[in-house]
């Protein structure tokens, strides 16, 4: 039980990650796949940020009279990762638009069908 209390943040991470990952694999709709991928990535962001938090600490901006700051390094890493995430999403969506134009559908099963018939 204490484990649940001290690790609740990580549990959120695990649930979000599993949900996102499931959507990516199980969904046939390409846009939804990308939404799932987004959720999957966000869960990793929370994992990193959680690791930087110190109880009683404040945001890592130096001020007089404050001694405990949260660890800035994970924040920096995740800033980078968020940007990478949106870059991937944008490229993926652009691909979806082109696929819709070329195939007339964005359902995985239908695309595979159309590739095999011609």
């Amino acid at each position: 039980m204490t484990l649940l209390l001290t690790h609740y943040n990580y549990l959120v991470v695990v649930v979000l990650m599993m949900a996102g990952f499931f959507i990516v694999i199980a969904q046939g709709n390409l846009v939804k796949k990308l939404v799932g991928l987004n959720i999957f990535q966000t869960s990793v962001f929370i994992l990193y940020i959680s690791s930087g938090k110190i109880t009683g600490g404040t945001a890592p901006i130096l001020q007089d009279g404050i001694t405990a700051y949260s660890n800035p390094l994970p924040h920096v890493l995740i800033l980078t990762a968020i940007v990478v995430g949106i870059a991937t999403t944008a490229l993926g969506l652009a691909l979806v638009i082109r696929i819709k134009k070329a195939y007339g559908t964005i359902e995985e099963s239908e695309i595979q069908q159309r590739d095999h018939t011609c």
């Binding site: 390409l30 991928l37 990793v44 195939y103």
Partner: peptide
């Protein structure tokens, strides 16, 4: 047009791979 579909699949797989590494 298959190249688009191949790129999309690679994007999904590649991003999952990269996120695992992360």
């Amino acid at each position: 047009r298959q190249s688009l579909w191949a790129a999309f699949r690679y994007l999904i797989m590649g991003t999952i791979g990269a996120t695992f590494i992360l």
